[in-house]
Design a binder for these strands. Structure first.
Length: 898
RNA sequence: GGUCGAUUAGCUCAGUGGUAGAGCGCUUGCUUCACACGCAAGAUGUCACUGGUUCAAAUCCAGUAUCGACCACCA
């Protein structure tokens, strides 16, 4: 077999293994399997989406869980798909239409526009799916779903109709969050409050009954003045009590409006008097309702002023109108002052413009199964990790508001409601139609369109995107009214992995839908990922340009490098500050493993050496040690996975391979692989290498799937046609058949040699001899096994040799160290600068004395000795003895120099 | 305003009562026949602050400060 190239090149390897997995149908879930099921549904990315680091973290975790579950013998379904993302997608296509053809969606009409969106989806919609494949995701692509698939859409309509029949869906004219750019209503969750530096305008209204007397009010929105229908004061406010029931003059358009009393008004804020614009403020709307005030809408849907009575303002954009209205007030002498004022303004999540509270006819949903949902999370039937998110969930459930589910868009699931045509025509359009206007026969609410469509008009609106997303776990697995083997096997799902930012949007709603429509909770565990920030702690965003392109990172460091680097440092339950250096580490790690295997290949046979530790007579301490550590790794992996501690899993894998396997084991057994070594030693060492590496690559596989597949294959660790990803983890320990006492002894010896070697290297470095290979060490005393391991010790210490001479009398000043392998000296042959050495020793003595003092102080404390655990006290004693011994030794060396 | 987090080496992060850790970066020395994407040695910390509990606190408790998230908001 060929020698491996010098450096690991992920690009081709990753691509070809991904294809091999696809060809081997490794990702396909078999509902007929009798293995235990494990399932995840992917949080469907927007069909317009481009992969960002959040996706990488999120899907890597899912892939790790899925691959680990396969290794544990589960039948795995990881169901992928995309979300139609109503507003985002429609906006994108509208922009394209405007740029390319100079037309709006209304110019070409609903049907033609939707055709364009579908075209667009076919052309550009799959990008993120391709990117997920590049990352190595083991999704069952045969079962990819889209929220607007025909079968899926049937579920959406049926759910709507069922909830309507249950009385939970209703239609009404309400104050909603209106996006003046997307021209649609939004749910409360889609409104993002942002702190704004605004201005608070103080103005005055003249009293009708007592001209010359004014009532002062403060507002941030003078442009809504034309919609004012009252001024409200707090009934307890003594300053204004006398005005309640009187009237004031609205400047433009001129009108006399009442002064009303309402508890909502805060006497402390502004002037304590509040102008009431019920059409354009949620609180004002409620005050208006309580006081039976008129509602005057003074905006067009796009938030330009609709007020022909005031021509100066009519048609202006709301922010232009604000300035103009202020100027007009000033001119009229009604403006008192303007103050800088910080307040929160709700922005539309998608269009990023201030939303406009607006009254309109919309569909609302009273959430189903809220009690069960709150209970499931509070009591842990669904476990949230980190657990604190359960509290966030709970507080949202407590204050839950009806969900505005209708959107004035075209791209989405059209509301499955039809009105009898003649009724609509009689009432002049569906927009103002209320359900009360219709008798039962005039209304058709169903997943199925009416049999005589020519007599009906369908509601023009579509549903909120999340109204389809909340059905995702089950609507992807089964068709409406059909038995599904897939759902039978894999629903409810096992784990859900998503960001905490969509607990309300998605997670809580899925639980409600799962409960209401399947009678079951849709998943057992929810793992919330970190939010990824840039190195300065800012959220990743397009506008800041601080979001690295994961594809670039994969080009540079490989998909495995990106996955491992991210996973090893991603904290559990805290934000992650992304640093490209982490990814670089991941790549370096891949290269390290690769080179360990390359070394193995260069040292011996091309095929795997069959080996059983219990049948081997020539196991050295290093062999036993690494086998034992590999067994320990298996156990530690298990417990870290059990708690979803992915960073710990990664750290364990890293430490084992680099710190134990390469730095210690491989260095210690290098001698066994040289030409002069015996055939038996060589075979034993190669056998242990293969045994440990083959298993290690399995452990590593969920994190670095491509590379582990490549190496397992090239090292001959797999049977013909076998994949690491399909191979179950072994259930028995490597050393299960070996006497534990023997293992313990071997591990202890290996540890002693490693520690001794470190001390000898240290000794060399102190005397600036680190690079010298010709140093000869002399052991004056030592354990029985020293002679057998002396060559290895010498090798590890980078020296010519370690000889044992009981009769050795060191010259005065010969440096030495007390090691687990005995008292070992390093004759210097007069190479060292005496003065430099003196000052070095003085510093050393000072340092050791400090440590001795510390230990003595502790042991002199009676309470410590009496109360601390015995092993803690004895460890402290040992430490003291050690330091004292060292001190005496160093002092002796110092004396010999002067 | 409410709730919940965070604060440990220059940076990113581990560390849940008993000698402060890793990787990167830094210093020094090595192209040693797997790897310079590497090897070896080293320097670097008032564990945010103030109290408390304890023989013993980065760790537990209380408070303070700073940063952040979410919720609710006064126009």
């Amino acid at each position: 077999m060929s020698e491996l190239p010098k450096g690991y090149e992920p690009a081709d390897v990753e691509k070809s293994w991904y294809q091999a997995w696809l060809d081997g149908k490794c990702f396909e879930a078999d509902p007929a399997s009798d293995k235990p099921p494990y399932s995840i549904v992917i949080p469907p990315p927007n069909v317009t989406g481009i992969l960002h680091l959040g996706h990488v973290l999120n899907t890597t975790i899912q892939d790790i869980l899925a691959r680990r579950a396969r290794q544990k013998g589960c039948e795995v379904l990881w169901l992928p798909g995309t979300d139609h993302a109503g507003i985002a997608t429609q906006t994108k296509v509208e922009r394209q239409l405007r740029d390319e053809e100079g037309k709006t969606r209304r110019d070409i009409g609903r049907e033609a526009f939707l055709e364009k969106v579908w075209d667009w989806k076919e052309k550009h919609g799959g990008i993120i799916i391709q990117q997920l494949k590049r990352l190595g995701c083991s999704c069952d692509w045969e079962r990819e779903r889209f929220t607007m698939d025909e079968d899926y859409s049937k579920w959406v309509a049926k759910v709507f109709a069922d909830l309507f029949n249950e009385g939970l869906v209703y239609r009404g004219k309400r104050m909603v969050n209106w996006c003046p750019v997307s021209l649609t209503a939004l749910s409360d969750e889609e409104v993002i409050p942002k702190k704004q530096n605004s201005q608070l305008f103080y103005m005055k209204y003249e009293l009708v009954e007592t001209p010359g007397e004014f009532l002062e009010v403060a507002t941030t929105r003078p442009e809504t003045l034309m919609g004012d229908v009252a001024v409200a004061v707090n009934p307890k406010d003594e300053r204004y009590g006398k005005y309640v029931g009187k009237r004031v003059k609205r400047p433009f358009p001129p009108a006399e409006i009442p002064v009303v009393a309402d508890d909502h008004v805060d006497p402390e804020f502004g002037t304590g008097a509040l102008k009431i614009t019920p059409a354009h403020d949620k609180a004002d709307f409620e005050i208006g309702m309580r006081n039976e005030l008129e509602i005057i809408d003074i905006f067009h849907p796009d938030a330009t002023v609709n007020c022909p009575e005031v021509p100066e303002l009519d048609g202006l954009d709301r922010f232009v109108a604000r300035k103009k209205a202020t100027a007009m007030l000033e001119e009229m002498g009604l403006l008192i002052k303007v103050e800088e004022h910080e307040n929160n303004v709700g922005f539309s999540e998608r269009a990023d413009v201030p939303i406009e509270p607006r009254i309109s006819m919309q569909w609302f949903l009273k959430y189903p199964a809220t009690e069960e949902t709150a209970k499931a999370v509070a009591e842990g039937d669904i476990s949230y990790r980190p657990a604190r998110w359960a509290k966030t969930h709970g507080s949202w459930m407590d204050g839950i508001q009806d969900w505005c589910v209708s959107r004035q868009l075209w791209w989405g699931h059209r509301i499955p409601v039809w009105y009898r045509k003649e009724k609509v025509e009689a009432l002049q359009g569906a927009e103002s139609l209320t359900l009360e206007d219709l008798s039962a026969g005039d209304l058709h609410v169903s997943a199925e369109p009416p049999a005589d469509p020519e007599n009906w008009v369908q509601d023009a609106d579509v549903l909120d995107t999340w109204f389809s997303s909340w059905l995702w776990p089950f609507a992807t697995m089964q068709k409406l009214d059909e038995e599904s083997d897939l759902a039978k096997k894999f629903y409810p799902t096992t784990d859900l992995v998503t960001g905490p930012d969509i607990i309300f949007f998605w997670v809580a709603r899925m639980i409600m839908a799962g409960y209401r429509f399947q009678g079951e909770l849709p998943f057992k565990n929810v793992f919330f990922t970190s939010i990824i920030r840039d190195i300065q702690g800012r959220k990743m965003s397009k506008s800041l340009g601080n979001s690295p392109d994961p594809i670039d990172l994969m080009d540079k460091y490989g998909a495995d490098g990106l996955r491992f680097g991210l996973m090893r440092t991603a904290p559990i339950g805290a934000d992650l500050r992304f640093d490209e250096a982490q990814v670089e580490e991941g790549r370096n790690f891949a290269n390290k493993i690769y080179n360990a295997c390359r070394f193995r290949r260069m040292a011996g046979s091309d095929s795997r050496v069959d080996f059983e530790p219990s049948a081997c007579e020539s196991l050295r301490p290093y062999h036993l040690d690494i086998l034992a550590k590999c067994d320990a790794l298996a156990i530690n992996q298990e417990s870290a996975y059990a708690e979803y501690r992915f960073n710990e899993v990664g750290q364990q894998l890293y430490d084992f391979l680099w710190g134990e396997f390469c730095d210690k084991f491989l260095e210690a057994v290098k001698g066994d692989l040289r030409e002069e070594a015996s055939e038996e030693q060589r075979e034993t060492t190669l056998g242990v290498f293969d045994l440990v590496m083959a298993r290690y690559l399995q452990f590593l596989h969920p994190y670095m799937p491509h590379m582990t597949e490549e190496l397992s294959s090239r090292m001959g660790y797999l049977a013909e046609g076998e994949f690491v990803m399909e191979k179950e983890l072994p259930k028995t320990a490597l050393l299960s058949a070996v006497d534990p006492l023997k293992v313990q002894e071997g591990s202890a010896q290996a540890a002693a040699v490693y520690e001794s070697a470190a001390k000898l290297r240290n000794l060399k470095a102190e005397y600036r001899l680190a690079a010298r290979k010709d140093v000869q060490f002399i052991a004056k005393s030592g354990p029985a096994w020293l002679e057998a391991e002396a060559d290895t010790l010498a090798l590890l210490a980078g020296s010519q040799g370690v000889t044992r001479e009981e009769a050795y009398q060191p010259e005065q000043g010969t440096p030495g160290a007390v090691t687990p392998a005995g008292e070992i000296f390093m004759p210097l042959d007069g190479l060292i600068d005496v003065e430099a050495e003196k000052s070095r020793l003085d510093k050393e003595i000072e340092k050791i004395q400090k440590e001795v003092g510390k230990a003595k102080g502790k042991l002199g404390n009676e309470k410590f000795v009496a109360n601390a655990k015995p092993e803690v006290v004895s460890a402290e004693r040992e430490r003291l003895t050690e330091w004292e011994g060292k001190l005496a030794q160093v002092q002796e060396m110092r004396r010999s120099l002067s």
